[in-house]
């Protein structure tokens, strides 16, 4: 495999579809994410960005098509037609260890300190001893500039700090991909910057990242490619300059960015 492995996209999405009952949330989405790439998913609300992201680690079970992580099918036992069988819990957990995820609402565990939040999976998934896990957790907290807050409970942290703890919790597991689901949407405007700068730093260090975001500045300046979704369909996936640097070709992208300019640029 050797060379092949480095050339192969780290995530391959092939003709993926997803239904919520009758509603078609995603249709025939095909998309690659390459190693060390930052891919931003943008689009109007309800376009399927978050659903697409959540299918990548099987928090949502996609219906048709495939999601491959380093060539391995995520979630299902085989690629074949329906009805297909989901992987065992054990196998799915093994896959998910390689995919870090950060949520809009942080989703920290409120009865655990920042350090315990980060160490939890190191102990109960990776099987590290408490001392070793805490060492690793401290290193992860240092990366998000929160070394001085390790004893704080989530309630005693600002939103931006909570989100950084959540990022530390994910990166402590040393995933090969990080998924971000609107990581700054629940934050007060003055706290957005500290989270984005941590994410920028991660991108600079070569982390592979898929980011659902409304932060067009981040998409324009940090992303390698920007994917635009509309009504469950992938409209385009291009370098940011082709969306932000010129008037986009597709009328849907144009209309979306137009509403953004009207709302954000006062």
């Amino acid at each position: 495999m050797g060379d092949n492995l480095t050339d192969q996209p780290i995530i391959q999405v092939r003709n993926m579809s997803k239904y919520f009952d009758e509603f078609e949330a995603l249709r025939d989405v095909t998309l690659d994410v390459h190693r060390s790439e930052v891919l931003c998913l943008i689009g109007p609300s309800g376009s399927g960005k978050s659903t697409l992201l959540r299918c990548l680690n099987f928090l949502e079970a996609y219906d048709g098509g495939e999601v491959l992580l380093e060539g391995e099918l995520i979630g299902w036992k085989s690629a074949g037609a329906s009805p297909r069988k989901a992987l065992s819990g054990e196998a799915l957990r093994r896959q998910r260890q390689h995919i870090g995820m950060v949520f809009q609402q942080f989703n920290l565990w409120p009865h655990l300190t920042a350090l315990e939040n980060v160490a939890e999976a190191l102990i109960h998934v990776k099987g590290l001893g408490k001392k070793q896990a805490h060492e690793k957790a401290r290193a992860a907290l240092a990366k998000v500039n929160l070394s001085d807050k390790e004893k704080n409970y989530p309630a005693n942290l600002s939103g931006g700090q909570q989100q950084r703890v959540a990022i530390a919790r994910a990166i402590a597991m040393e995933p090969s991909v990080m998924l971000f689901d609107e990581p700054t949407s629940a934050l007060d405007p003055e706290l957005v910057g500290e989270v984005l700068s941590v994410m920028k730093e991660m991108a600079n260090e070569g982390m592979t990242m898929v980011v659902v975001t409304h932060e067009m500045g981040f998409a324009a300046h940090v992303a390698d490619r920007v994917a635009f979704l509309d009504s469950g369909r992938l409209v385009t996936c291009v370098p940011p300059a082709e969306i932000f640097g010129q008037v986009p070709e597709d009328p849907r992208v144009r209309a979306f960015l137009q509403t953004y300019r009207e709302r954000n640029v006062v």
Binding site: G89, R96, I99, F103, A170, M173
Partner: peptide, 10 residues
């Protein structure tokens, strides 16, 4: 969901 995403057993 956060626990599941990390691979924490049930």
């Amino acid at each position: 969901e956060a626990a599941q995403a990390l691979g924490i057993p049930t």
